[in-house]
Design a protein around this nucleic acid. Structure first.
Lengths: 117, 117
DNA sequence: TTCCGAAGTTCACAAATACAGAACTAAAGA
DNA sequence: TCTTTAGTTCTGTATTTGTGAACTTCGGAA
Protein backbone atom coordinates (compact mmCIF):
# COMPACT_ATOMS: atom_id res chain seq x y z
CA UNK A 1 0.00 0.00 0.00
CA UNK A 2 1.32 3.38 -0.95
CA UNK A 3 2.45 5.69 1.80
CA UNK A 4 0.97 9.07 1.06
CA UNK A 5 2.81 11.87 2.69
CA UNK A 6 2.46 15.60 2.26
CA UNK A 7 2.85 17.34 5.59
CA UNK A 8 4.24 20.50 4.09
CA UNK A 9 1.65 20.75 1.37
CA UNK A 10 -1.45 19.82 3.32
CA UNK A 11 -2.76 23.01 4.85
CA UNK A 12 -3.22 23.29 8.59
CA UNK A 13 -6.81 23.46 9.59
CA UNK A 14 -7.88 26.31 11.86
CA UNK A 15 -11.56 26.65 12.65
CA UNK A 16 -13.03 30.13 12.12
CA UNK A 17 -14.00 31.83 15.38
CA UNK A 18 -17.70 31.10 15.09
CA UNK A 19 -17.23 27.39 14.72
CA UNK A 20 -15.20 27.12 17.89
CA UNK A 21 -17.28 25.30 20.50
CA UNK A 22 -17.12 25.19 24.26
CA UNK A 23 -17.14 21.40 24.50
CA UNK A 24 -14.33 21.35 21.95
CA UNK A 25 -12.28 23.82 23.98
CA UNK A 26 -12.86 21.95 27.22
CA UNK A 27 -11.99 18.66 25.64
CA UNK A 28 -8.75 20.05 24.29
CA UNK A 29 -7.90 21.31 27.76
CA UNK A 30 -8.90 18.13 29.55
CA UNK A 31 -5.41 16.67 29.30
CA UNK A 32 -2.59 17.64 31.65
CA UNK A 33 -0.01 17.74 28.89
CA UNK A 34 -2.11 19.97 26.71
CA UNK A 35 -2.89 22.28 29.59
CA UNK A 36 0.82 22.66 30.19
CA UNK A 37 1.52 23.23 26.53
CA UNK A 38 -1.07 25.99 26.39
CA UNK A 39 0.31 27.53 29.55
CA UNK A 40 3.76 27.72 27.98
CA UNK A 41 2.46 29.05 24.70
CA UNK A 42 0.49 31.70 26.45
CA UNK A 43 3.55 32.97 28.27
CA UNK A 44 5.54 33.24 25.04
CA UNK A 45 4.21 36.18 23.11
CA UNK A 46 6.02 35.23 19.92
CA UNK A 47 4.90 31.66 19.80
CA UNK A 48 6.90 28.53 20.26
CA UNK A 49 7.62 25.47 18.24
CA UNK A 50 7.13 21.96 19.52
CA UNK A 51 10.71 21.39 20.57
CA UNK A 52 10.86 24.60 22.54
CA UNK A 53 7.61 23.84 24.26
CA UNK A 54 8.39 20.30 25.26
CA UNK A 55 11.80 21.46 26.31
CA UNK A 56 10.27 23.85 28.81
CA UNK A 57 7.81 21.23 29.90
CA UNK A 58 10.51 18.71 30.67
CA UNK A 59 8.06 15.89 30.28
CA UNK A 60 9.52 13.50 27.75
CA UNK A 61 7.05 12.50 25.09
CA UNK A 62 7.31 10.87 21.67
CA UNK A 63 7.17 13.23 18.75
CA UNK A 64 4.08 11.58 17.39
CA UNK A 65 2.20 12.14 20.62
CA UNK A 66 3.30 15.75 20.69
CA UNK A 67 2.12 16.21 17.14
CA UNK A 68 -1.29 14.82 18.04
CA UNK A 69 -1.62 17.16 21.01
CA UNK A 70 -0.90 20.13 18.79
CA UNK A 71 -3.40 18.95 16.24
CA UNK A 72 -6.10 18.68 18.87
CA UNK A 73 -5.32 22.12 20.26
CA UNK A 74 -5.29 23.56 16.76
CA UNK A 75 -8.51 21.96 15.61
CA UNK A 76 -10.34 23.00 18.74
CA UNK A 77 -9.40 26.60 17.95
CA UNK A 78 -7.14 27.24 20.92
CA UNK A 79 -3.91 27.73 19.03
CA UNK A 80 -2.83 28.95 15.65
CA UNK A 81 0.11 27.26 14.00
CA UNK A 82 2.18 28.36 11.09
CA UNK A 83 5.03 26.69 9.30
CA UNK A 84 8.38 28.40 9.39
CA UNK A 85 10.59 26.24 7.27
CA UNK A 86 10.82 22.96 9.03
CA UNK A 87 9.38 24.23 12.26
CA UNK A 88 5.82 24.80 13.36
CA UNK A 89 5.32 27.96 15.34
CA UNK A 90 2.20 28.03 17.44
CA UNK A 91 0.58 30.66 19.55
CA UNK A 92 -2.62 30.97 21.53
CA UNK A 93 -5.50 32.61 19.65
CA UNK A 94 -5.98 35.05 22.48
CA UNK A 95 -8.13 37.71 20.95
CA UNK A 96 -10.55 35.33 19.32
CA UNK A 97 -10.86 33.18 22.42
CA UNK A 98 -11.30 36.14 24.67
CA UNK A 99 -13.94 37.57 22.40
CA UNK A 100 -15.91 34.36 22.49
CA UNK A 101 -15.19 33.20 26.05
CA UNK A 102 -14.05 36.26 28.03
CA UNK A 103 -11.69 35.35 30.81
CA UNK A 104 -12.16 31.62 30.45
CA UNK A 105 -8.71 30.63 29.32
CA UNK A 106 -7.04 32.82 31.90
CA UNK A 107 -9.11 31.34 34.67
CA UNK A 108 -8.41 27.80 33.61
CA UNK A 109 -4.69 28.36 33.24
CA UNK A 110 -4.52 30.10 36.58
CA UNK A 111 -6.26 27.18 38.23
CA UNK A 112 -3.91 24.80 36.50
CA UNK A 113 -0.91 26.72 37.72
CA UNK A 114 -2.18 26.58 41.28
CA UNK A 115 -2.89 22.91 40.96
CA UNK A 116 0.61 22.25 39.75
CA UNK A 117 2.25 23.57 42.87
CA UNK B 1 -20.72 -16.28 33.61
CA UNK B 2 -22.64 -15.06 36.61
CA UNK B 3 -24.26 -11.67 36.39
CA UNK B 4 -23.24 -9.82 39.50
CA UNK B 5 -25.52 -6.98 40.35
CA UNK B 6 -25.64 -4.79 43.41
CA UNK B 7 -26.37 -1.21 42.41
CA UNK B 8 -28.12 -0.40 45.65
CA UNK B 9 -25.50 -1.94 47.84
CA UNK B 10 -22.41 -0.74 46.08
CA UNK B 11 -21.57 2.68 47.46
CA UNK B 12 -21.38 5.65 45.14
CA UNK B 13 -17.91 6.96 44.75
CA UNK B 14 -17.35 10.65 45.41
CA UNK B 15 -13.80 11.94 45.32
CA UNK B 16 -12.75 14.01 48.31
CA UNK B 17 -12.18 17.68 47.45
CA UNK B 18 -8.43 17.44 47.31
CA UNK B 19 -8.39 14.67 44.80
CA UNK B 20 -10.55 16.57 42.35
CA UNK B 21 -8.43 17.58 39.38
CA UNK B 22 -8.79 20.26 36.78
CA UNK B 23 -8.30 17.92 33.80
CA UNK B 24 -10.93 15.67 35.32
CA UNK B 25 -13.39 18.53 35.65
CA UNK B 26 -12.76 19.76 32.15
CA UNK B 27 -13.12 16.31 30.72
CA UNK B 28 -16.42 15.82 32.47
CA UNK B 29 -17.63 19.11 31.03
CA UNK B 30 -16.33 18.47 27.53
CA UNK B 31 -19.58 16.85 26.44
CA UNK B 32 -22.65 18.87 25.40
CA UNK B 33 -25.06 16.58 27.18
CA UNK B 34 -23.12 16.70 30.43
CA UNK B 35 -22.80 20.46 30.24
CA UNK B 36 -26.57 20.69 29.92
CA UNK B 37 -27.12 18.26 32.77
CA UNK B 38 -24.91 20.31 35.05
CA UNK B 39 -26.65 23.51 33.98
CA UNK B 40 -29.99 22.02 35.00
CA UNK B 41 -28.67 20.64 38.25
CA UNK B 42 -27.16 23.93 39.15
CA UNK B 43 -30.45 25.72 38.71
CA UNK B 44 -32.27 23.25 40.96
CA UNK B 45 -31.20 23.94 44.50
CA UNK B 46 -32.69 20.72 45.84
CA UNK B 47 -31.14 18.41 43.34
CA UNK B 48 -32.73 16.42 40.57
CA UNK B 49 -32.93 12.81 39.63
CA UNK B 50 -32.08 11.49 36.20
CA UNK B 51 -35.62 11.44 34.87
CA UNK B 52 -36.31 15.00 35.93
CA UNK B 53 -33.08 16.17 34.38
CA UNK B 54 -33.46 14.47 31.07
CA UNK B 55 -37.08 15.59 31.03
CA UNK B 56 -35.99 19.20 31.21
CA UNK B 57 -33.29 18.61 28.68
CA UNK B 58 -35.67 17.18 26.14
CA UNK B 59 -32.87 15.36 24.42
CA UNK B 60 -33.88 11.72 24.32
CA UNK B 61 -31.16 9.40 25.49
CA UNK B 62 -31.05 5.76 26.60
CA UNK B 63 -31.03 5.19 30.33
CA UNK B 64 -27.69 3.48 30.19
CA UNK B 65 -26.11 6.47 28.51
CA UNK B 66 -27.61 8.78 31.08
CA UNK B 67 -26.29 6.61 33.85
CA UNK B 68 -22.80 6.80 32.40
CA UNK B 69 -22.94 10.57 32.15
CA UNK B 70 -23.88 10.80 35.79
CA UNK B 71 -21.12 8.45 36.77
CA UNK B 72 -18.57 10.58 34.94
CA UNK B 73 -19.86 13.76 36.53
CA UNK B 74 -19.86 12.13 39.93
CA UNK B 75 -16.40 10.64 39.69
CA UNK B 76 -14.92 13.89 38.46
CA UNK B 77 -16.23 15.55 41.60
CA UNK B 78 -18.73 17.88 39.98
CA UNK B 79 -21.87 16.39 41.43
CA UNK B 80 -22.89 14.57 44.55
CA UNK B 81 -25.50 11.84 44.24
CA UNK B 82 -27.51 10.17 46.91
CA UNK B 83 -30.02 7.38 46.71
CA UNK B 84 -33.59 8.14 47.73
CA UNK B 85 -35.37 4.88 47.41
CA UNK B 86 -35.23 3.93 43.80
CA UNK B 87 -34.15 7.35 42.65
CA UNK B 88 -30.81 9.00 42.54
CA UNK B 89 -30.83 12.61 43.56
CA UNK B 90 -27.87 14.63 42.38
CA UNK B 91 -26.72 18.14 43.01
CA UNK B 92 -23.71 20.22 42.09
CA UNK B 93 -20.94 20.27 44.70
CA UNK B 94 -20.95 24.02 44.63
CA UNK B 95 -19.07 24.93 47.76
CA UNK B 96 -16.29 22.47 47.21
CA UNK B 97 -15.89 23.37 43.57
CA UNK B 98 -15.97 27.05 44.27
CA UNK B 99 -13.39 26.67 47.00
CA UNK B 100 -11.06 24.86 44.67
CA UNK B 101 -11.81 26.63 41.39
CA UNK B 102 -13.44 29.95 42.25
CA UNK B 103 -15.82 31.12 39.58
CA UNK B 104 -14.87 28.46 37.09
CA UNK B 105 -18.09 26.51 36.91
CA UNK B 106 -20.16 29.67 36.72
CA UNK B 107 -18.09 30.99 33.89
CA UNK B 108 -18.28 27.77 31.94
CA UNK B 109 -22.01 27.41 32.40
CA UNK B 110 -22.58 31.01 31.43
CA UNK B 111 -20.57 30.50 28.27
CA UNK B 112 -22.51 27.37 27.54
CA UNK B 113 -25.80 29.15 27.97
CA UNK B 114 -24.72 31.86 25.55
CA UNK B 115 -23.53 29.29 23.07
CA UNK B 116 -26.86 27.51 23.22
CA UNK B 117 -28.86 30.48 22.00
C1' DT C 1 -49.30 -9.54 50.91
C1' DT C 2 -48.23 -9.92 46.16
C1' DC C 3 -47.47 -7.90 41.80
C1' DC C 4 -46.15 -4.33 38.64
C1' DG C 5 -44.09 -0.26 36.91
C1' DA C 6 -40.49 3.11 37.43
C1' DA C 7 -35.58 4.24 38.15
C1' DG C 8 -31.07 3.04 37.54
C1' DT C 9 -27.15 -0.11 37.08
C1' DT C 10 -24.29 -3.53 34.92
C1' DC C 11 -22.87 -6.33 31.11
C1' DA C 12 -21.42 -7.06 26.41
C1' DC C 13 -20.13 -5.62 22.22
C1' DA C 14 -19.39 -2.26 18.54
C1' DA C 15 -17.48 2.13 17.31
C1' DA C 16 -14.56 5.87 18.16
C1' DT C 17 -10.46 7.78 20.18
C1' DA C 18 -5.79 7.87 22.10
C1' DC C 19 -0.80 6.38 22.37
C1' DA C 20 3.60 5.30 20.66
C1' DG C 21 6.95 3.18 17.57
C1' DA C 22 8.50 3.16 12.85
C1' DA C 23 8.90 5.04 8.41
C1' DC C 24 8.95 8.98 6.17
C1' DT C 25 9.40 14.15 4.05
C1' DA C 26 11.17 18.66 3.67
C1' DA C 27 14.27 22.36 4.97
C1' DA C 28 18.62 24.11 6.41
C1' DG C 29 23.25 23.84 7.24
C1' DA C 30 27.97 21.53 6.95
C1' DT D 1 25.78 16.21 -1.49
C1' DC D 2 25.05 14.46 2.98
C1' DT D 3 23.30 14.92 7.51
C1' DT D 4 20.67 16.64 11.04
C1' DT D 5 16.47 18.52 12.65
C1' DA D 6 11.44 19.11 13.05
C1' DG D 7 7.40 17.35 12.42
C1' DT D 8 3.73 14.24 10.11
C1' DT D 9 1.49 9.98 8.85
C1' DC D 10 0.72 5.16 9.28
C1' DT D 11 -0.28 1.11 11.93
C1' DG D 12 -1.41 -1.74 15.48
C1' DT D 13 -2.82 -1.84 20.24
C1' DA D 14 -5.22 -0.19 24.10
C1' DT D 15 -8.47 2.58 26.24
C1' DT D 16 -12.84 5.02 26.20
C1' DT D 17 -17.56 5.81 24.80
C1' DG D 18 -22.48 4.67 23.40
C1' DT D 19 -26.31 1.63 23.48
C1' DG D 20 -29.42 -2.39 23.81
C1' DA D 21 -30.57 -6.08 26.85
C1' DA D 22 -30.93 -8.17 31.19
C1' DC D 23 -31.35 -7.21 35.64
C1' DT D 24 -32.37 -5.36 40.76
C1' DT D 25 -34.67 -2.69 43.95
C1' DC D 26 -38.19 0.34 45.75
C1' DG D 27 -42.77 1.96 46.31
C1' DG D 28 -47.43 1.97 45.23
C1' DA D 29 -51.61 -0.46 43.58
C1' DA D 30 -54.54 -4.36 43.79
Amino acid sequence: MKFVYDPFIRPLHHPPPDSITLPGILHALSDPVRLSIVAELRKAEDGLNCVETTGRLKCAMPKSTCSQHYRILRESGIIHSERRGVELTSRVRRKELDARYPGLLDMILKAWKREQE
